[in-house]
Amino acid sequence: MQAEAAPRKRVVVGIDGSPASYAALRWSVDYARMAGAQVEAVAAYDVAGATGWSAPAVDATLDAEQARRTLNREIITALGMPQDVPVEEHLVRGNAAQALIAASEGAELLVVGNRGRGGFARLLLGSVSQQCALHASCPVVILRAPEDTTEAAAT
């Protein structure tokens, strides 16, 4: 009998197009390279008005296609091409924190940026990264975006 191959180690990373998520993706790839793991880039999206009366009806399939193209473009922007570490793209409809917490099941590590695109710019920790730190089923690494030297020079 042939022995089954051990499942490959997984590093899950949240990506939302923010500078902090790009830093998290690059760090994840570097870590995965050293650990012999694969990277699972997880992005969450939601359809406007899907759960209430806040927007006109939309085509959910079209939104999913747009979100998939955006995720692919963000990975290429953050990493360039090609990569020596496997990066799987996972697009999930719904809440980002819940999607990342679910994806953390069985993972070696969950990596997120300290803040995404929404909320208050001066917060040190966003709600998604905070929820992941509290509820993920694996260790969590929270990364800050590199300092923007142009903004620092202007202040």
Rank of each mutant, 00 (worst) to 15 (best):
M1R: 05
M1G: 14
Q2W: 03
E4C: 00
E4T: 10
A6E: 14
P7K: 10
P7Q: 10
P7R: 11
R8A: 13
K9C: 01
V12K: 01
V12Q: 02
G14F: 06
S18F: 07
S21A: 04
S21D: 02
A24H: 02
A24L: 04
A24M: 04
R26V: 08
V29M: 07
Y31S: 03
A32D: 07
A35M: 12
A37H: 01
Q38A: 15
Q38L: 13
E40C: 02
A41F: 13
V42R: 00
V42W: 03
A43V: 00
A44Q: 07
A44I: 10
Y45N: 10
V47Q: 05
V47L: 08
G49R: 11
T51Y: 14
W53S: 14
W53A: 13
A55P: 07
D59M: 05
L62H: 09
D63Q: 14
A64R: 12
A64N: 00
A64V: 00
A67I: 07
N72E: 15
E74M: 15
I75W: 05
Q83N: 15
V85W: 10
V85H: 07
P86Q: 10
V87Q: 11
E88N: 15
H90L: 12
L91I: 13
L91T: 09
V92E: 09
V92F: 00
V92R: 08
V92C: 05
Q98N: 11
Q98R: 10
Q98H: 10
L100H: 06
A103E: 09
A103G: 05
S104M: 04
G106L: 08
E108W: 01
E108K: 00
E108L: 02
L110W: 01
V111M: 04
G113L: 09
N114H: 10
R115I: 02
G116L: 01
R117L: 12
R117Q: 13
F120D: 02
F120C: 00
F120Q: 05
R122N: 10
L125T: 02
L125N: 08
G126Q: 04
G126W: 01
G126P: 03
S127H: 03
V128A: 07
S129P: 02
Q130C: 03
C132F: 09
L134Y: 05
H135M: 13
H135V: 09
A136K: 11
A136N: 10
S137V: 05
C138Q: 05
P139Q: 09
V140N: 12
V140A: 13
V141L: 15
V141P: 02
I142F: 04
L143C: 06
R144D: 12
A145T: 11
P146V: 05
E147H: 11
E151I: 11
A152Q: 13
A153M: 13
